[in-house]
Write a protein that binds this DNA or RNA. Structure first.
Lengths: 252, 252
DNA sequence: CCTGGTCTAAAGGTCTGACCCAATTTACCA
DNA sequence: TGGTAAATTGGGTCAGACCTTTAGACCAGG
């Protein structure tokens, strides 16, 4: 009865009727992703697309807006402006992760868990693949973190260093994720003033030691030290958090 | 002269003029993310927004389109339709990661590296936080993987199991990432026909043993086994890949 | 009673055509 | 020749109309 009380045996699944703008957006997206157009290739002007597709300008514009939000094109105004093909970068991943974290009011614990999963691997890959330039950036971030006077400067430099490690891994996916996590942690940690001189000192030392391991291409040490650093940071942040907010009970 | 030949001493820095649709989109986004509106809350109808904001309908619609692409609202047509608040879910992260992977023609190695970073942690957290329902899903996926006859069924069931592990971790970020990676791996592995009976058998056994560890809440064992499983899978896939495509030279 | 047809109101989807603003070229004049 | 003004090209916005989809109500007929 539950699914059989129809007089006919014919079954159909729910069907979707795509919107015109989606159709166009999908078409363009596929072409862009296929690599058919190199980065920077200009799409035809809107009015040209109108005549080619026989859609209205509104529709065309909505399609372009979709692709723009997805980071697949960049739109400039003015003469010689228009829509230009752009390969999606870490930015888009970072921003969507940011939406997830902010919108879902994700437990801070989740963010730290993810970080503990990601960062040691970043450190390992960085130790394996780092270039001289990567090293320069890491050390520059280290300088800055030691030199930073105020809280905000410290946090910012801290983020920079962690992102630099991810960048040195030469893995775009991990880099994108780290950028997003860093931003999230940056904004949350900002309010809780748990950064005192001691924390700062410990952080600087930890960063130095990880950097050294990366420099010496000692993957195992990099993983070990990064794991410890991230873990202790997470523990400290969580402790502060628990003192501040109500902890979410774990279902079971 | 360079910066002082003005008759007035008033200096202004270059300013950006945001687009109207962006302004509206940002305003609505902030409100949604702040949690002010619970999920499912209907936004005012487009025409209503037009009168409230004194913008044109085109502008309003572009703003809504932006939010829709970002996964913050869902738009239904027809009477009682409209825009409804929606908290961004794993899918949006997954799809943006997918764009990154496809668009950048990311090295398959990067995807596997990320997986090797993520999945062991998923397994650990799953072992710690799993519920009875999670376990059911895991075992169901196991059944299906053993029962699957054709290649496609196998791959699909395989993905299901890995996603189920991520879900059992009760960490939305990791889950989102895993969904994206799985999809990417699914599509790439699809073509290379490296899945033979032996691979299949090994996979099933590995999954069973990880599932068991999760069931028994043995976090360490879960991590260990998952690490080995993912690593060997990655190695095998990479080997096939190297036989098929040209490997990218590593810069230094 | 069900079943299907019809109607209506609400809301998004699409189209048209016009106008505005920004960035470049181009052409012209001092 | 060099600077400035006009023309051109392109996106951004607006106003208004019409189409399509959906929910709900109401009706008619077997």
């Amino acid at each position: 009865m539950a699914a059989g009380d129809a007089r006919s045996a014919i079954r159909l699944s729910p069907m979707e009727v795509p919107k015109a703008s989606d159709v166009l957006a999908n078409e363009l997206r596929e072409r862009i992703l296929s690599g058919e157009y190199p980065e920077g290739t200009p799409l035809p002007p809107e009015r040209e697309l109108v005549t080619q597709t026989r859609m209205s300008r509104t529709t065309v514009r909505e399609a372009l807006r979709i692709l723009e939000v997805q980071g697949l094109i960049r739109i400039k105004a003015g003469r010689a402006g228009g829509a230009f093909v752009q390969r999606p970068g870490e930015e888009s991943v970072a921003s969507s992760l940011e939406l997830l974290i902010r919108g879902r009011q994700i437990r801070l614990a989740s963010v730290h868990e993810t970080r503990e999963a990601i960062e040691p691997s970043c450190a390992r890959l960085a130790a394996q693949h780092r270039t001289a330039g990567d090293l320069r950036r890491l050390e520059a971030a280290n300088e800055e973190i030691a030199a930073s006077a105020d809280l905000d400067g410290f946090l910012r430099a801290n983020v920079d260093w962690h992102v630099a490690v991810a960048t040195a891994s030469h893995n775009e996916i991990l880099t994108g994720i780290m950028m997003a996590l860093s931003r999230a942690i940056y904004t949350t940690t900002h309010n809780e003033g748990f950064v005192n001189d001691e924390v700062r000192d410990i952080t600087v030392r930890a960063h130095r030691s990880v950097t050294r391991a990366i420099k010496e291409r000692d993957a195992d040490a990099a993983v070990r030290r990064m794991t410890r650093h991230v873990h202790s940071y997470a523990a400290a942040a969580l402790e502060v958090d628990e003192r501040t907010t109500v902890s979410v009970p774990e279902e079971d």
